[in-house]
Design a binder for these strands. Structure first.
Lengths: 220, 220
DNA sequence: ACAATAGTGTCTGTGAGACAGTATCGA
DNA sequence: TCGATACTGTCTCACAGACACTATTGT
């Protein structure tokens, strides 16, 4: 900042765009809204909020997630900041993208109480479809999709897409969806064994062997 | 953005803070400037520039790097965006941090022509020292340091800290500095063998066996 | 010959990949 | 008993870690 008079540089709007991911019907889904106004009227868009002058970026993201999903304590992280000049044809907006991961159960729980036009869309379909999304939102989704596939390999993010207690077949499916390939049961279980602990519960009602529920082991 | 009137949200200044890293004297160094004005007068700070209204974030970062180092074509990537409300006591500034990696040779080359108060500082010393840096810049450096250590394990960033042609002992040293631990020669060489190709040149003048120069293999 | 650093061969343990097998439910 | 899915044992192979060895320069 040395040598610059900040007043010579115009200020700009800063927003957070929110990428709320979940898994539904064995597919990775993302929460999108249909725009009711120009520009990009009727196109699908990421939900987003402007950052208040007395609000941190994380706070804005948390507020936006709360407004869109009703949920307060879900996992989210900053993804990337997009600053193309003409992202928004109306004016200069810097967009700090945040990625949130939430188990479907939690979204269902509140879905009934809300009357927004937000809905879940298949991420692969959105990405490969020719249909245009608002602004640069398709690029943002592509980038997030790529990051998810990467991070699942060396972090625990996948756990945020299942509930507190989960069976291993379900968790494996989440890994497979994020990675985009199928895994061998035995190997998968060996790999995550150190990260989980048994519960006393098992599934029931299925016409096959029950599956045990596990939970994440608290790290020491 | 649905349902929000952007005019209700105040605009803010957006800046890029630049973390220019290099390796000197077998230590990881970063380019810092001494502030000549309040706030934080005389404290060390990251160089930075405000983002122009018709300038993308990447362009602003590139411009800042050019201004500080004179260099145009060096590797850089967006690191993270910091948006605490009181980062800057004067006003609200969103800072998009960029990380640049440059071989010392290139910095030396232009150092003479310039008369800025920028200089290289030992990163570990800055991090562990009690001395305060301007704004939240120490936190930013800590985060970048952590990311570097991570990324060196699964990407090629280390190559950006050596020149076009380099010997393996030198490259290994860079890896060791970034990782913060020493490596076994033989293992290191096996690991990077697929990424490099021999040149016809070797070192000379040292009172021991010469070392061959390599260059990065162009990927197929 | 010696000091010093460059560079290699090879043993071992760990962990991912692949596959075949066993276990337990409902019907 | 059978269909279906849950779960396990074990072989193989690639690769990282560890270490000992050989190679080539200047003095």
């Amino acid at each position: 900042m040395e040598g610059y008079d900040s007043s010579k540089y115009e200020k700009m709007s800063v927003a957070t765009d929110l990428l709320v991911f979940t898994v539904e019907d064995d597919k990775l889904k993302i929460l999108l809204v249909e725009r009711s106004e120009e520009p990009f009227k009727n196109a699908l868009a990421l939900p987003g909020v402007f950052v208040g002058i007395n609000e941190t970026l994380d706070e804005a993201a948390r507020r936006g997630i709360k407004e869109e999903t009703g949920l307060k304590n879900i996992y989210f992280e900053q993804l990337y900041t997009f600053g193309e000049v003409k992202r928004d044809p109306r004016m200069r907006i810097i967009s700090v993208a945040y990625m949130a991961l939430v188990p479907l159960k939690k979204l269902d729980f509140i879905a009934g109480e809300r009357t927004v036009n937000a809905a879940l869309y298949d991420v692969e379909e959105i990405i490969s479809s020719k249909k245009k999304l608002a602004f640069d939102h398709k690029d943002i989704i592509k980038y997030a999709r790529w990051r998810l596939a990467n991070k699942v390999e060396y972090t625990d993010i996948a756990f945020h897409l299942v509930g507190e207690e989960f069976t291993l077949p379900v968790l494996q499916k989440v890994y497979e969806i994020l990675l985009g390939k199928s895994l061998y049961k035995a190997n998968f279980r060996k790999k995550i064994a150190p990260m989980i602990e048994e519960t006393e519960f098992v599934t029931s009602g299925d016409k096959h062997r029950p599956s045990r529920f596990y939970r994440r082991k608290k790290e020491m």
